[in-house]
């Protein structure tokens, strides 16, 4: 059987991860930032699963499950705080978050 080489997974996940990081850095909408964070997390999950199959070792796939749970909790809290922001400022654009500046 022909397997996809591990290096393909590495390159693909790195590209996906970079897209996620760039999204976090340049997007101004809080929801899109959360989605970019999810993209980062998912690229990591894919990489872990790929390594796990490559190494014939289940630890990586177990790790993926825990990351999913934690990411869900993180997003839940993030969304809750975004709702709070929306109630006070009526916007989820992070440019309105400029009360704190040096």
């Amino acid at each position: 059987m022909q397997f996809i080489p591990i290096s393909y997974y590495l390159i693909f996940c790195s590209v996906l991860f970079c897209i996620g990081v760039i999204g976090v850095l340049i997007k101004r909408n809080a929801l899109l930032i959360l989605m970019s964070v999810e993209l980062m997390i998912n690229s990591i999950n894919l990489l872990l699963a790929a390594f796990s199959t490559y190494l014939n070792d289940p630890a990586g796939q177990i790790f993926v499950f825990f990351i999913m749970v934690v990411a869900a909790a993180e997003v839940a809290i993030g969304l809750a705080i975004i709702v709070v922001i929306y109630r006070t400022t009526h916007s989820i654009d992070i440019d309105v978050l400029n009360k704190l500046k040096w």
Binding site: I33, I77, I81, V84, I85, T88, I94, L97, K99, L100
Partner: peptide, 10 residues
Amino acid sequence: SAEAGVKLIF
């Protein structure tokens, strides 16, 4: 305070 929360979680 809400702004601090959102910055911290991001």
